[in-house]
């Protein structure tokens, strides 16, 4: 360690780099990036359709795209509020 660095300000650029990478890669890993956009759009559409009939919490909707081999599946998970009943 350089003796001068004991008095100087510690650089922060590495932690900025790590942060940026973690956010970026989380998006890219969500299978290709184009899928991330698709999923986000689908999520909004589905939310709108369901919300017509049932009052749901937007945060209780989960979409997952899963790939295994040649098959891609789309999983939709919506947690309904306890009182939800189609009227």
């Amino acid at each position: 360690m350089n003796i001068l660095s004991l008095f100087g300000k510690r650089g922060q650029s590495a932690s900025v780099a790590k942060n940026r990478l973690q956010i970026l890669l989380a998006h890219e890993r969500a299978a290709d990036g184009s899928d991330a956009v698709l999923i986000s759009n689908l999520r909004e559409d589905i939310l709108a359709v369901v919300a017509k009939r049932i009052a749901i919490d937007p945060d209780s909707v989960r979409l997952e795209m899963d790939r295994s081999g040649d098959v891609t599946t789309l999983g939709i998970d919506i947690e309904l509020p306890p009182t939800a009943r189609a009227s």
Binding site: M1, N2, Q12, A14, A17
Partner: peptide, 10 residues
């Protein structure tokens, strides 16, 4: 050294 001072990813 640069990793220690936080200017390079460790």
């Amino acid at each position: 050294d640069r990793a220690k001072t936080g200017d390079m990813l460790a």
